[in-house]
Design a protein around this nucleic acid. Structure first.
Lengths: 333, 333
DNA sequence: CTGTTAGCGCCTTCAT
DNA sequence: ATGAAGGCGCTAACAG
């Protein structure tokens, strides 16, 4: 690998001149610039990014933290972040948090030790205080899908309440009156908001909220199944079910089928997130779209602004929308 | 951020002593070591990985190239690579190739410019020659799911031929005699091998290979649908269908359903890869498992051996196995 | 076993 | 506009 010094020698200039033409910051005599360009080409010179980082204490890398690598939702997130950043010659260092406090902390430490210029996180277990600390530690961060008081700019969120509302209102419009709900874990803000939206729709329609029709799951496919069984065991009739994410909806669907129910006639089901497999389940899942990719792209743009002096418009709150497929149907009394 | 120099000063030793205790390579007087450890703790010192990289020309990072980030198959791959590597304090820089030659080359250039110590790739479009060059360029590489002559060690592959064989033999054992096949693109080695396995099973059973029962798809869901329609239009009866991956199987399944067929009674379908959504499709998909995660982990171990002086056993060829679910059934004449 | 001294490749004042 | 020189934080000979 040739160094900047060899380029300088070949071009017959000093290495600072080479540095200048490379970075294009300061102006250089045209003739010299051409000689340098020529030398760069002849030597097939590539600047050493490590040396550059050491000299200007920027690595052009941003750390990314996601709970898992092999889930469609986070796949979309990473895809959007990676392509947005790489288009600006920045790169991503991806780490996994596994929904576990220790692992998430480790991952962040790791990213910091790697001198990332900024962090983009979908943090599940890290506390608000921890995140505030991180940020005050002068490390720019962006938080996807999470709202932290005190970090209004860093947060890129979805209007989860509205999403829950849309799901339930759709069922109400189809004539359903008894609507069960399988929620995400109560300690997650998005889960609470989705549930709140569900309740608002109910109340708005003049119906009451019956806790017996609500089951608290943990967003896993398994809990969709468990939830449905539990709800049915409570012996209150319901003709429709909202699940707080598509995984649980999928679990509920296969469970229903195992019980011999025919869908959607016997039970209308709505999911949440519109992950890619939502149209693989049968019947194809009616769900609430979650524009993760857009949010992720926005988080990357926010970082580009904040750290690399770019100037993108950034939107902090995104709107979900209903995606009607075949898992919901009019209520027939 | 404190530097190694400040640690040395506080501990009252030279900075090389600090470096020694940090790296644990060479032995250090116990008392001094303790003073250093103490100073490190008090200052909350964290070595600067960039400076370290510059000094020893190793970044402890390995570049990863995958076609997409938001696909279950590659999600599994990345997950395995990331966790294996990070357990050894190496990190991954992930790039996307989009099945496109230019993009893949860009990605590799990018990774090289980042001074990755090695590359782990699932390359689709890069030619064998290109990969050979890369390797001769003294950059260690590992190739997942690809066989390149001249790079026997770098390749971690699946016995695709056997996989194709298993799929078809399963159907034969169920009594099917007319078995259609939707293949992957002919320019992909894995697609050819899977098809070859299918043909071997047929021949072994005393049946002939009818090209009219073979359709060449491109591994996309859409092509599963197109393939099925095309095969049916050819007007040769078949009671079973093998698809060279799960995406196409999924496309074929929903197409069949749209045509009013009932599955698996009217048509038995086998997929390939056993990606996570295979059990979301209905009927749950019988398929051939592809141990990507194992292969990916192995590729990481190979790199660990090759670049970081570790000593793992590495296995270069993996075996697929049949996963029987509900999309296949006995042939009833 | 410990400290001194050069670099690693680049950027950036500082003079010129 | 250009060149010289110092430094980013660390590792690795080399002496002692």
């Amino acid at each position: 690998m040739p160094t900047i010094y060899e380029v300088a020698e070949r071009a017959g200039v000093s290495l600072s001149t080479v540095s200048r033409v490379l970075n294009g910051k300061s102006s250089v005599n045209k003739a010299l610039k051409e000689r340098v360009d020529q030398a760069v080409k002849e030597l097939n010179y590539r600047p050493n990014s490590v040396a550059r980082s050491l000299a200007n204490s920027r690595t052009d890398s941003v750390g990314v933290l996601v709970p898992e690598l092999n889930a469609p939702f986070f796949g979309d997130l990473m895809q959007a972040v990676e392509s947005t950043l790489r288009a600006q010659d920045k790169h991503v260092i991806i780490t996994v948090g596994r929904n576990c406090l220790e692992t998430e902390k480790d991952a962040v430490d790791f990213l910091i030790s790697r001198n990332c210029d900024a962090l983009i996180m979908h943090a599940e277990a890290l506390s608000d205080d921890y995140l505030l600390d991180l940020n005050q530690n002068k490390l720019p961060i962006a938080l996807v899908n999470r709202k932290v008081e005190g970090l209004p700019n860093a947060c890129i969120t979805l209007d989860n309440e509205k999403g829950g509302y849309l799901a339930t209102r759709h069922l109400l419009e189809l004539g359903h009156k008894n609507i069960a709900y399988i929620s995400g874990p109560a300690y997650k803000a998005d889960a609470c908001l989705r549930l709140k939206g569900h309740e608002r729709a109910l109340i708005e329609a003049g119906l009451s909220v019956n806790p017996q029709l609500i089951f608290n799951g943990n967003y896993s496919e398994e809990d969709g199944k468990i939830g449905l069984l539990e709800l049915m065991a409570r012996d209150l009739p319901f003709s429709a079910l909202v699940c707080a994410n598509d995984w649980m909806a999928s679990g509920a669907i296969s469970c229903a089928r195992d019980l011999g129910m025919s869908l959607p006639q016997d039970l209308s089901i709505v999911g949440f997130d519109d992950v890619v497999f939502a149209h693989h389940v049968f019947p194809r899942l009616t769900t609430v779209s979650n524009p993760v990719a857009d949010m992720a792209e926005m988080s990357a743009k926010y970082i580009l602004n904040k750290v690399y002096g770019q100037d993108h418009n950034v939107q902090h709150c995104f709107e979900p929308s209903l995606v009607v497929r075949e898992s919901t149907i009019n209520f027939e009394s």
